[in-house]
């Protein structure tokens, strides 16, 4: 890498700081940018700074947004009676991609983690209560992870939501679609068995 001029090395170093990008890939990307028209490079640089300037948190769900309301909270056709609580924006994206949900979201910003000193005051539990207090939500779907912290956070939320006139549900765990049972892990299989449903 050292045989490159300083300006190229500089870009390689900066690209190399990105997750999952090693020095080789960074070098390839840098040379690719160099060998393409200036307009493209300018666009890339601009889109990065523009994103940093314009993205903020949605006032309602705390997801990423260019405006006060995000592209989900701002849509009138969504079912405002359903509120799905997730840990991070990426979880919301996953559920959106599934196409199986038409309600709204709420991003907690983490999970309770006693050993890491993360308590209720460190995630958006107060904000969630305020959101539910406004009265529009009829069902809260708890979609935190299925690890110990995710499960116990969901149990905690169910507890604090008990005082509100809302139904509280937890996303189901089960056998992945298209899979062979012999490859499904023990815990999932056990849960799937416990939560089996009648076939109509």
């Amino acid at each position: 890498m050292l045989h490159h001029p300083k300006s190229i090395i500089n870009l390689i170093r900066n690209l190399g700081r990105l997750p999952g990008i090693g020095e080789k890939t960074a070098e390839r990307l840098a040379l690719h940018i160099l060998n393409n028209p200036s307009a493209q490079a300018q666009q890339l640089a601009l889109s990065i700074t523009h994103m940093k300037e314009s993205v903020r948190l949605c006032r309602k769900c705390f997801g990423y947004s260019d405006h006060e309301l995000c592209t989900i909270c701002g849509v009138v056709s969504r079912n405002t009676a359903l509120l799905c609580v997730v840990e991070q924006p990426a979880d919301m994206t996953s559920i959106e991609k599934s196409g199986g949900y038409n309600g709204l979201y709420f991003i907690l910003g983490g999970v309770l983690a006693p050993m890491d000193g993360v308590g209720p005051e460190h995630i958006r539990i107060g904000e969630l209560m305020k959101r539910v207090e406004r009265g529009e939500v009829k069902e809260v779907i708890l979609a935190t992870g299925t690890h110990v912290e995710g499960e116990s956070t969901s149990a905690y939320l169910a507890q604090v939501l008990r005082g509100y006139p809302v139904t509280v549900s937890r996303i189901a765990s089960g056998v992945p679609v298209g899979g062979d049972l012999k490859y499904v892990d023990q815990v999932t299989l056990k849960k799937a068995m416990e939560k089996r449903h009648a076939v109509e």
Partner: peptide, 20 residues
């Protein structure tokens, strides 16, 4: 796996304390 512990925040908090 003590899966009843994690479905209760109080149990989880005690287990975390002992573990820590």
């Amino acid at each position: 796996l003590f899966s009843n512990i994690r479905s209760d925040i109080k149990k989880t908090a005690y287990a975390c304390y002992w573990t820590e």
